[in-house]
Simulated assay, not measured.
Amino acid sequence: MNLLENLQLQARYSQWVNQRLYDVCANLTEDDPKRDRGVFFHSIHGTWNHLLLGDRVWLARLQGQPVPYQCLDLELYADFAELRAAQADCDQALRDWIKGLQTDDLQRRITFRSLSTGQDKELSVPIMLTALLNHKTHHRGQITALLSQCGCESGDIDFICAPVSITLGFTSRTI
């Protein structure tokens, strides 16, 4: 597997996990997603919101577009269903963008200003994508812990448990 294939795989897996965890969140009571649970972005809703915001910031940088936000705790959607739909759209946009990459694109370096530190940075496309995908994993871990606090089981979302369609890139069969 080459680097491009690995990045595509990670994006497919990320999309699958997001869908699975949002499915679990759909079983929460109306108040649970926004209940402050003492985490950095306060709640399940706040953490999902931050995840989407981060995805959009990284994707804009990668695509050479202006960064759409200037702070990391802006609420993008008050409605949980709208937040979920926007995340699904963003996950697909990321997959499509990565799928369109060519080997030469992996050598490109991008300069940007960090929203968290205000410092100028320059990173290669693969490092930026790795940062984006790791960021998603980090915050999904928080979401699974918060779901446990609500008495919800997030299911087996380990990479090894992903459907074959994710790990092989096909859509016709699952484990």
Rank of each mutant, 00 (worst) to 15 (best):
N27I: 08
T47Y: 06
D89L: 13
D32K: 12
P163S: 04
A78H: 10
R20N: 00
L115F: 03
D36M: 13
C152E: 09
N2L: 11
L146Q: 11
S165V: 01
A11Y: 03
G54I: 02
G54R: 04
A162L: 05
N2D: 15
A86E: 03
R113F: 04
D55Y: 02
P33M: 15
I160R: 08
A93G: 01
H135W: 08
N27F: 14
T130D: 07
L123H: 15
E5C: 09
V39E: 06
Q70N: 08
N6R: 15
E153W: 06
L72V: 14
G151Y: 07
L168R: 13
Q119P: 03
Q15K: 06
L133Q: 10
A60K: 08
T111G: 12
V67F: 00
T137E: 01
S148F: 03
D36R: 15
A85E: 06
C152Q: 13
T47K: 08
E122A: 14
D79G: 09
A26K: 14
A162H: 09
S116D: 10
T130K: 10
P66L: 02
G118F: 12
C90L: 07
I127M: 14
L9T: 09
D105F: 13
F159D: 00
H139Q: 05
A86I: 01
E122I: 13
K136W: 04
R173W: 04
R140Y: 02
D156C: 00
L106D: 09
L62I: 02
R12G: 00
Q63G: 01
D23Y: 11
L168E: 12
T167R: 14
L9Y: 11
N6L: 13
R12V: 01
R35I: 09
D104K: 15
N134Q: 12
Q149T: 11
V39W: 07
C90M: 10
I175D: 01
S114T: 11
S165H: 07
C90S: 14
N6I: 13
Y77S: 04
T111I: 12
D73Q: 12
R20I: 00
Q92H: 09
R113T: 13
Q142C: 06
P68D: 04
N6V: 09
C161N: 08
V39C: 08
T171M: 12
G64I: 04
Y22I: 08
A60F: 03
R113P: 01
R113W: 06
L83S: 05
D36Y: 13
I127L: 15
R12Y: 01
